[in-house]
Amino acid sequence: MSNDSIETPRIRPWTLTTERIIIAGVLAAITIILGIVPNLGFIPLPNAVGNATIEHIPTIVSGIVAGPIIGIISGLIFGVLAFFRATDPFFKDPTVSIVPRLFIGLVSWAVFAGLVRINRDLAAAVAGFAGAATNTILVVSALIIRGYFPAAVIIPTVIVQAIFEAVIAAILTVILVRIFYVLEERVVHAPDKKPREQLPY
């Protein structure tokens, strides 16, 4: 509902509401957009493997703002999309492309829910980092278990990219979660972060 979500006490994490279903739908649409708009879903990295992806960020955000069930649903959609769109042969294996993705939103939600009492920004940062790390670790593990690559080869290859992705995810998650709550709480004015003389406005 448009106005009473603020007044009602927080909905329990494992329940589904219409609003949460819509959040999942909107974020799934953004996942699709990140996949189909050229240059939007990834950051070109100057290394051998190529690009750092940010496609998992909507899934992380969905877990944080809409709870574990929506987190899993978003992960499933992300995984199925990855499965169908993959040009990389190993991602045509559902155990690599789909299964690991189910846990991204779940982990992000758990981390955020655990830390939010300390500080919301901190919780979002750690949840973003953990979500991205879950993605990398589980996908890489699946690649190793399925015998596509030996561990000694793949881990050194992706480690830089993995850390970079996790850091980017942490930063973006903080920004996005902050915006979500700014909208939710209908705040009008932003605080100035620097003295006036150092701002361009």
Binding site: R196, E197, Q198, L199, P200, Y201
Partner: peptide
Amino acid sequence: GKDVSFGPRQQKLPLHESR
């Protein structure tokens, strides 16, 4: 403020000019 100053920032104008 950030949005309106977007153009001046892209042109790399000095801060006081942008303000």
